[in-house]
Design a protein around this nucleic acid. Structure first.
Lengths: 341, 341
DNA sequence: TTTAGTTATACTCACTTTTAGCATAAGAGT
DNA sequence: ACTCTTATGCTAAAAGTGAGTATAACTAAA
C-alpha cells in the first residue's frame, strides 16, 4: 500500500502596468476557517499520463483558468514538505508543488472573469520601498520579531533568530537586501505575523495526532494585525519566491523586456525595473547604463505622450547576449569586483 | 487507472581537493547497451509516506549509498520531461527528478567503497579553462556544431541554432560565459556529441511506438568521438546544472567557505574559486577584494607548509552577511553597475 | 652560508565606473 | 512669454579595477 503522490503546478504570472507589478489570481474554494475565499494562484495537478512536460501542464492549467497563453516561463522551486496542503492530513495524497514564474505584457491580454490582476505588494507590503522605508517595518515588524526572538530560551537559537531577523529586514545597521523576499516571508510566518500561520495552526490543532508538529513558541502575535493580504494554501510563500527570483534575475539577464512592449521609452523601462526591485533609481545614470551597456538601441521614433519633451522609443538590443556575459540592468551595490588575470 | 508517479532525488556532492573539484559517484546497474556500468550520482526515490521533506529523503539516500552525512544542501531544479528514464517506456512509472547540490569538505570524510570521488571536469572537459581555452572547443566542438546548425533547412531554426551555439560557446566574437554550463551540455546533446544522446536514441528506436520523438536531424556525429565521460540516465545534465549554479552562486553568496576548512590561506581560497569557475585569477587583486570586501579576517596563525613564506590563516567573516547585500567573490566582468538614487 | 626558488604581502599607477549633480532641450498649458 | 514637465547631455569627485613592481619570509640546493 503506497501513499499516492501528486504534483501540483502553480503559476505566478507577472505583469507591470501603471508602474505597479501585478500578479494574476483566481478564486479558490477554501474549506478553511478563513472568512472569505482567499486569493489563489492559478494551479492544478500534473497529469502524469498526458502532460509531456511540467511546463506544458502548467500552460494548460493557466489557459483553462485564466484564458492566457503564456510566453516566458521559468521554473521556481519545488516545495515538498509534508502537510503543506491541509488535505494531506485528512488522508489526501502527498502533494509536491512546482511553481513557475511567467512574465507577460498585461495590456495585450484579456483574462477570464474568474481571474483578476492584483498588485503583488498587497500581499507583501513590506517589500514596497518605492517611496521610502515602509513604516510598517519599524512600527510593527521589528518589535514583533524582537519579541519572537526573545521567546526562545536556548542561547544558540536566540542568536540564530537574532541574526536571521537582522539580515532579512536590514535591522540594526544591516543593509536591506531586496532579494531576500522568501527569507522575510518565512520569518514572518514562523513568528506568527501572517494569517496563514494562524490558519495552519488551527488545522494542526484539529488533527491532534501529530501534536509534536506544534512548535512550542511559534505562536500567534496577539496585539499585531496580520500583515498583508493572505492567500490560499502556501501560495504567498510561492509569490515571495517569485518576487525574490525576479529581483535577482533582472540584474543579470534581460528579462525585463518580457514585461514591456517591443518599443518603449527609457523612463518606461526604468519604471518597470523600479516596480520590481521596489527601489527608486537615478534617471540619468540609468539611461547611461542601459544605453552604453548595449542593452537597448534607439529607434528613431518618439513617444509624444510623455507630458514633457517627447522621449525616444528604444528597443531591446538582442546582440548584447553575444557581447556581455550577464546582461541585466544592475541595482545598487551590484559592484562585486572582477579579477581576471 | 492512473499512471503512477515517482519522485527521484539526486545528489551532486561537491568537494574541492588538490585544486580539483570532485563529485561523488556510485556505480549504477544499467541495463543499457553501454559497454560498462556508467557512473551515477547517488540517488533514490522519495518515500511519500516516510520522508517528511525532500531534503531529508535525499540525505537518507546519500547516507545509505555513500556513508556521508551532508551539510550544506541546495535544491537545483526539477526535471520532469517524459521518458527521461528509459524504464518509463517499458511501462514504468512517470519519473520526476529533483536534484540537490551539496558542498562538503572532502578531507574530513571517508566514504563507502561503492562510492568514489571523480574530477567533475572528466564529465564536462570543455568547461575546464584553467590553463587556457580548451583546444577541444575549436578542434571538435565548433566544427561539429557548425555542421549541426546547417543540418536544418528552415531559416528561422538555422538562425536560432546559430545564435545558441555562438552564445553558449563564445564563438565568433561572443564572450564565454562560464555560467552557461547547462546550455552547453544541452547543445552537445541535441547535436549528438555526447554518448547519452546516442544511447537514448537507441532506446527510442527500440520502442517504435513513439516514432515522432525522433527528431529528424538530431543525429549522431559520425566522425567525432563523443565528448567527456558519460553518466547514467540524465545525470550529466544534472551535473551541468549543478556546475552552472555553483559558478553563479559563488559570486553573490559566500558558499565557497563550505568547501574549505574553518581556517585557510588566501591562496587556498583562491584555488577553490578558480577550480569551480574554471578560470585563473590575479593573486594580489583577489587578496585585496576578499580582504577589503570584509569577506575574511586574519587569524594570527600561520600555515608553515606553503613552500615559501608562511601564509596567514584566515577565516570567513560572518558579519559580512549583515553588511553587504550580495557577498561573493566576484569574477571577471562582474561589474554591472549600481544606480541608487 | 650563500644562493636560488617559492610563496606571501604591500603598494603603485593608469584606467574605468559610479555617484551625484548641473545644465540644456523640447514639448504642453496658461 | 512664462511655467511646468520630461528628456537628454555632460562633468567633477570618489570609488573600484587591472596589471605590475617591490619586498618579505621561508626552504632547499650549491
Amino acid at each position: 500500500m503506497t501513499t499516492p503522490l501528486v504534483i501540483e503546478l502553480n503559476g505566478v504570472i507577472v505583469a507591470v502596468t501603471d508602474d505597479t507589478p501585478r500578479i494574476l489570481t483566481v478564486k479558490h474554494l477554501d474549506h478553511s476557517l478563513m472568512e472569505s475565499k482567499p486569493d489563489a494562484l492559478p494551479f492544478g495537478p500534473l497529469d502524469p499520463a498526458a502532460d509531456r512536460t511540467l511546463e506544458l501542464g502548467l500552460r494548460g492549467w493557466v489557459r483553462e483558468q485564466t484564458g492566457i497563453e503564456l510566453g516566458y516561463v521559468e521554473q521556481l522551486y519545488t516545495f515538498g514538505d509534508r502537510n503543506r496542503d491541509p488535505e494531506e492530513r485528512q488522508g489526501g495524497p502527498r502533494v509536491i508543488s512546482v511553481p513557475y514564474l511567467a512574465l507577460v505584457r498585461e495590456g495585450q491580454l484579456s483574462v477570464r472573469a474568474e481571474a483578476s490582476w492584483r498588485d503583488w505588494y498587497d500581499y507583501l507590503p513590506w517589500e514596497h520601498w518605492l517611496s521610502n522605508h515602509p513604516p510598517m517595518i519599524d512600527e510593527q515588524i521589528a518589535p514583533a520579531l524582537a519579541r519572537w526572538v526573545k521567546k526562545t530560551s536556548e542561547p544558540a537559537m536566540l542568536r540564530s533568530r537574532q541574526e536571521r531577523v537582522e539580515i532579512a529586514f536590514g535591522l540594526r545597521g544591516a543593509t536591506w537586501d531586496e532579494e531576500r523576499v522568501l527569507e522575510r516571508y518565512e520569518l514572518l510566518y514562523e513568528a506568527g505575523l501572517v494569517a496563514e500561520q494562524a490558519r495552519d495552526r488551527l488545522w494542526r490543532r484539529e488533527s491532534r495526532k501529530e501534536s509534536r508538529d506544534i512548535s512550542e513558541d511559534s505562536s500567534v502575535e496577539p496585539k499585531t494585525r496580520f500583515l498583508g493580504q493572505p492567500m490560499a494554501l502556501d501560495h504567498r510563500r510561492i509569490l515571495a519566491t517569485a518576487l525574490g527570483r525576479l529581483r535577482g534575475k533582472i540584474k543579470y539577464r534581460p528579462v525585463v523586456f518580457e514585461l514591456l512592449p517591443p518599443t518603449f521609452t527609457l523612463l518606461q523601462l526604468q519604471r518597470v525595473v523600479e516596480a520590481l526591485a521596489g527601489v527608486r533609481l537615478h534617471k540619468q545614470n540609468f539611461r547611461r547604463l542601459v544605453e552604453k551597456g548595449g542593452l537597448v538601441e534607439g529607434t528613431s521614433q518618439f513617444d509624444p505622450k510623455t507630458g514633457g519633451r517627447p522621449a525616444m522609443l528604444f528597443r531591446f538590443r538582442r546582440e548584447v547576449l553575444r557581447e556581455r556575459p550577464a546582461p541585466g540592468v544592475g541595482l545598487p551595490g551590484a559592484t562585486s569586483g572582477s579579477l581576471l588575470k
